[in-house]
Design a protein around this nucleic acid. Sequence first.
DNA 1: AGGCACTTGTGAACGGGTGCACAAAGTTGA
DNA 2: TCAACTTTGTGCACCCGTTCACAAGTGCCT
Lengths: 236, 236
Amino acid sequence: MRQGIPDATVARLPVYLRALTTLAEDGTATVSSEELAAAAGVGSAKLRKDLSHLGSYGTRGVGYEVEYLVYQISRELGLTQDWRVVIVGVGNLGHALANYGGFVSRGFTVAALLDADDRIVGETVGGLVVRPVDDLEEVVADQGVHIGVVATPAPAAQDVCDRLVAAGVTSVLNFAPVVLLVPDTVMVRKVDLSTELQILAFHEQRQVANRLSVDVPARVVALEPDGGTGRAGVSP
Amino acid sequence: MRQGIPDATVARLPVYLRALTTLAEDGTATVSSEELAAAAGVGSAKLRKDLSHLGSYGTRGVGYEVEYLVYQISRELGLTQDWRVVIVGVGNLGHALANYGGFVSRGFTVAALLDADDRIVGETVGGLVVRPVDDLEEVVADQGVHIGVVATPAPAAQDVCDRLVAAGVTSVLNFAPVVLLVPDTVMVRKVDLSTELQILAFHEQRQVANRLSVDVPARVVALEPDGGTGRAGVSP
DNA sequence: AGGCACTTGTGAACGGGTGCACAAAGTTGA
DNA sequence: TCAACTTTGTGCACCCGTTCACAAGTGCCT
């Protein structure tokens, strides 16, 4: 139970945490798995199983104490300690990240902003002065940075990543549209805006296809309980 | 094979597409599953299985023709048509999105930028004049918008989403840190920066714990490395 | 023409995650 | 105290995705 929380569960814990803090702000003291699951947009069984991986923090017949659960999830995610983050690349996205309040409120501290462009270095963004990217190694070492955020243009990303890793960073959040190569001791997560849009486009296209096939003899459509890939009999 | 491409595969197609266009720019004509898989950061077997869902587009003994595969994936993702996108909320993140080149290059057109703040309305961002959020319904209808991007603060997100859906949008990309409720005919994808960081923090924490326990008899794991948040001895 | 080297496409085994359904455990009210 | 009710925690069956391993197909060289 304590041993090894499934990845899928870990990925959902922040969602639960968000829902719980909202509930706490509204003054809710306890919450049932059903309610919390609804707020988080998952099934109640899944939620209970997820939480059971952390321990037995609920009370049968009652539910979960909001504040206590917030603490337990925070602790499990490692949010009770302060993580220092360095953001490399202060373009449009870097600006957004530097000004994003969600970091600080969750126990993350932006240790520094770095950029290779002389025109940006020296500017103040989100309360921090942008420093030259050459300070990378110094910043990571002196400030004890754990997490690197890569928000550079694609061509610079791998190089920046290499330097982060060499300097001792073991987790990287990558916004650049490239696949970063790292030693397997380092964890990389990628966020790609255009990828998300393309996935949406795929489903849009399929929906459109479905809509068009509505007036087609219904026989074929009915077979697929799964909502149907709809592509009934279309041959290329 | 033609019937219903798995979600996991769809999510990877944009990655393959990116790798392929890079290869194409470098003048590569054909590529093996091994090479392409390496460039995309996945296993070669997975890549082949993914591509096999689209059809038999490879040549045994040779590999895949880059340009042809680009076309096939693009078509499957629906990128051969132009999708019109409206971005609601032109704060830091909205700015970044509006200026992001990756949209246009992939067949997405930003139809309009909307914001509720009078101080921002009228500004020109990424070549477009920001319009008041009241124009939402008009924009969606007149411009034939398919996809809505929600980049508003959390409190406004659900309302904006409702209006998008009511106006006819069937896909939503949500950057606000809330779970959007939509009818199940509408598809929502969520991108949450702080969620990603929290997942990294979890793995960081665990790595640190592992490092510490290397030279310690394994039993001691139960100790809290966490610098005394107080609640150490709480028993249920 | 025939063998060799290479690469795709896929059947089959495997593993992890999801959802159901229910027993266990706690609460409330009489 | 006891019975009725609520809600958690979990065993189990199922499903989807991943990985392995290999037969089948293709080009090249002799």
